[in-house]
């Protein structure tokens, strides 16, 4: 993809974002539940409620509310959270790194597992290993991420308490981290004991998130590798005396990845969505966890901000997938 095409793709994302904002804003207004009613104590007077309404701008017509919100949005102002009484933008900014770290680690685990499993499945010509790979992949895929999370909590957190099952870091631990990217920062500072402590917290939720995606993508990649193996250029490489492992790695893998990446990309957005439940389950302080709280509290500004944030992340992921697609497939490079 040329730089021009990349910029054009970015431009195309704007109408998408606008559409998302529209849907989110109006949908939130029609679902039942009054945020003001949620925050006021039972004895509050009509006047108190009206005052609060005016404070949050909820007394104006809905179109006006949208225009005001959109105008603020362009200045980077997502409003104030009704339940937490803080600026939404800085709230999200503070919590997002935790989610990003979780999603990133989870994706890396999924990719590594996929490659190991599907390459092993395609390399060995006996009956046992390919079948074992299929069985592992099917199981990983059949169980949803939050169930994996529960299983891990019960097995590795409760029955054999090998891992912490709550939070991001031991709250009693003293640390001098300045950013919210705890793991990345500790790794950059080469503070490996701290990184290990962080990883112990991260590992279970990350694996739980990664497993369903691993299952689907492994099966996909293995079938794709088997299809690729039948191609004439592979036969040609075999006739040139290259070993099976060499051909698999150099000739087959990249071709097999082309169809896999398209579908794997969709899976990645599911993974991101999965963080919501997993974060809640592991009491992990990311934006997913925050989103559940916001919904329960009918915290409209926060919900809107969070959904927009997720939309931006989806768009970025899709862009990354398109980029990797054109890197993998030279036929896409020249437009």
């Amino acid at each position: 993809m040329s730089l021009k095409q990349f910029l054009q793709r970015l431009l195309l994302a704007l109408p998408t974002l606008f559409g998302v904002s529209l849907v989110v804003f109006f949908l939130m207004r029609v679902v039942p539940g009054d945020p003001i009613a949620m925050m006021t104590p039972p004895g509050a007077t009509e006047a108190d409620v009206a005052q609060l309404r005016a404070l949050y701008g909820l007394d104006k017509p809905i179109i006006t509310q949208y225009v005001i919100w959109l105008g603020a949005l362009f200045q980077g102002d997502l409003g104030t959270s009704i339940s937490l009484r803080q600026d939404v933008f800085s709230l999200i900014l503070e919590r997002m790194p935790a989610t990003l770290e979780l999603a990133f680690l989870s994706t890396m685990i999924a990719i590594a597992l996929c490659l190991i499993l599907s390459l092993a499945g395609a390399y060995f010509r006996d009956r046992i290993i390919p079948r074992a790979v299929d069985a592992i992949a099917s199981t990983a895929q059949a169980v949803p991420d939050f169930l994996w999370g529960l299983i891990f909590i019960l097995l590795l957190g409760v029955a054999w308490p090998l891992f912490p099952i709550s939070g991001r870091i031991n709250p009693r631990l003293d640390h001098d981290l300045v950013s919210q990217f705890y793991l990345f920062e500790s790794l950059i500072k080469l503070d490996f004991s701290l990184a290990l402590e962080l990883l112990r917290h991260l590992l279970l939720p990350a694996i739980a998130l990664a497993l369903p995606m691993t299952g689907i993508v492994t099966r996909l990649l293995k079938v794709s590798l088997e299809e690729t193996w039948k191609q004439d250029y592979i036969t040609m490489a075999r006739a040139r005396g290259f070993s099976r492992w060499y051909i698999l790695r150099k000739e087959a893998l990249r071709n097999a990845l082309i169809p896999t990446v398209t579908l794997g990309g969709v899976q990645l957005t599911f993974l991101l969505g999965g963080t919501v439940l997993i974060e809640k389950l592991f009491s992990y302080p990311g934006i997913g966890n925050m989103a559940i709280g916001a919904v329960i509290q009918r915290d409209l500004p926060l919900i809107q901000g969070l959904i927009l944030t997720f939309a931006v992340m989806f768009i970025v992921i899709n862009l990354l997938i398109d980029l990797s697609y054109s890197w993998l497939n030279p036929r896409m490079r020249h437009g």
């Binding site: 004439d232 250029y233 036969t235 040609m236």
Partner: peptide, 16 residues
């Protein structure tokens, strides 16, 4: 021992 294959359209790896 070398091979010249039948179909040149599919005998070269498209990504290399």
């Amino acid at each position: 021992i070398a091979l010249i294959p039948q179909d040149p359209m599919v005998s070269l790896n498209p990504v290399r």
